[in-house]
Structures are given as C-alpha cells and as structure tokens.
Design a protein around this nucleic acid. Structure first.
Lengths: 145, 145
DNA sequence: ACGTTCTGTGGACGCTATTGACCGCAGTTT
DNA sequence: AAACTGCGGTCAATAGCGTCCACAGAACGT
C-alpha cells in the first residue's frame, strides 16, 4: 500500500467507472500495472465493491430515518435486522442504544411500519427514531493524505 | 423511468463497473441503447456518481462516530461543517438536534479534536457524540421491487 | 554475488465504447 | 386516412480499452 495505491483508491472513490487506461495516465503507470494493483486491492478486501450513487427520491426512498435500538438480549437480533431491506446501514454502538440503524423508506407510513416491526423484534426493549428532514450530503469521500 | 431503467439502476448500484455490453446483455437491449439510457439517468441527476467502497480501516478511518448538534443560530453553520473533511454525511433532522453527522477519523484523539472544534462553531450550543464500536454493514443497496 | 521474487513494460488480441446513419412505432396534425 | 414528428431502438464502423503473455529490471535475503 504505497502512494500509488492510495492515489488509485482516491480516484476510484471519487469516480469508480474510470477506465484502467485513464487511471494509468493519472498515476503514471501502464494500464496492466494498474490493472494488477487494483485487482490486488480488491482481493485484499481494501476495495469492497463499486456502487452507483442514486438519488433516493428517484427510486422511492425519499424518507430517511436514524433508529436507535435499546437491546436486552442480543442473540440473533443482527440476523433479523439484516433481513430487513429497509435497513441501509447498521452500527453497533457504545452507549445505552446498542444499535444505530439508517433506514430508508418511501413514506412515513412505511417508516411507522418499520419502527413497529423493530420494536417487536425479540431482544429489542426500546426504539428511538430520528427523522431526517433533508440530506445535506452523504458518503462524501474524505480526500486521502 | 421504466422497468429497464430500474434494472440498470439496480445493476449499477450493486456493481458500478459493469460494462455497457454486460448491462445490455442483462437487460436485453443493445449496448448503444444502454449507453444512452445510462447517460440520460446521469444527466437527470438520478445517478449522481459511482464510488468505490473502501474498507475504512485500510485508509486510516477506523473510528466512526455519529454526532448530534443542537443549534441556536443556523446562519452559515452548514458551510462550516462542509469544510470539515471528517464529516462524511450530514443530515438536517427533526427534533432538538438540528444536525446529525457521521464522522470518520483515524483515532479517538482525532475524534476528540473534531468534537471540540464543532462545539466551538458559531451557532452550536451543544453536541452529543455516539461512538460506533463496529460497522455491521453500511450503504447496502435496497433491491428495487 | 547470486538467485528469487515482485512489479513493472510492451505487444497482441479480442472485445468494448461511442458515434452516426437508419428504421419503426405512437401520438399529433392536417 | 395520410403525413409529419419525435422518441428510442438496431446495426455498422472505428478508435480505444481490457487482459493476457513474455520478458526486463529493481529489491531483497542468503
């Protein structure tokens, strides 16, 4: 993981569809060299994937909420949460609320349904929901170095 | 925005480096047709970009925290927050805490510094920090229909 | 110093990106 | 009903890219 690897990561975090040829030009190597470096970064798990960033409203996911879960028994709650497609992100937290979830749904009605479902999951003793009114920005890649 | 557009979005959300030829095969159109559709989705702002998903630990961003901000005067706080590269995401929230921020840094010391900086920003009357012990998953794309 | 390993380059090949010309259908106008 | 028009597709062509291979040079350990 040298400076060139970091440049490649930086470039791909910003613009994942750059061609190997273009990456090669940017970092001053040949295309096959870049191909191999990126392949190794993927194999090592440094690069986990490439994802299009889609305007949530355009795909009927205009309602964003953060839900904190106070948990008593933690057995397989995680598996149950993982099965809920509305849960976009899941963090295990320090503090009284063991889990913090980012949830995305189409409507407030749907959000209500998600909250009720979660509060009925075995092991969940309380939920706390914070509704986002607007997303100022999200997933902004921090420049490296 | 028909079923084919939705398929393309779905495919690119999962795997942004798919070639147009491969996308074309998956949706049963020709490559130029897919090229044009994707271009229109980008131009319309539906697809906002393509980003590599990078293991945070590998790039010295192993500490994740969620910070809530209680605000009294809201003038140009947003601009100040935007200038902080540690703030990966920023939501304007309903509730007492006007902003919820996802912050990523290398160390707890750095987190402390960020919290102190934020508490001194003009307009911020209180901060509340929740530290993530582990990220179970993040930015998981919800399958469309 | 030597061999080993790692990582690069350059060339070759098939496949892809991207453009332009053309076609067919739907909706609208005359 | 016929003609016009715009949209969105296919096909064809070319330039450029992805990817594999053989080979070369630097870094390293013994």
């Amino acid at each position: 993981m040298d400076a060139i690897d970091r440049s490649l990561i930086d470039l791909l975090r910003r613009s994942a569809r750059l061609s190997y040829a273009e990456l090669a030009r940017q970092v001053g190597l040949s295309a096959p060299a870049v191909h191999e470096r990126v392949g190794k970064l993927e194999a090592a798990g440094v690069i986990r994937g490439y994802h299009a960033d889609v305007e949530p409203h355009a795909i009927q996911l205009g309602v964003t909420a953060i839900i904190g879960l106070v948990v008593n028994a933690n057995d397989d709650l995680l598996d149950l949460l993982r099965e809920m497609p509305e849960v976009e992100s899941c963090y295990f937290m320090a503090g009284e609320e063991s889990y913090l979830l980012k949830v995305r749904v189409a409507t407030i009605d749907e959000l209500e349904h998600v909250i009720v479902s979660m509060s009925h999951l075995p092991g969940v003793s309380r939920t706390r929901t914070m509704v986002a009114l607007s997303t100022k920005w999200e997933g902004r890649p921090r420049p490296l170095n």
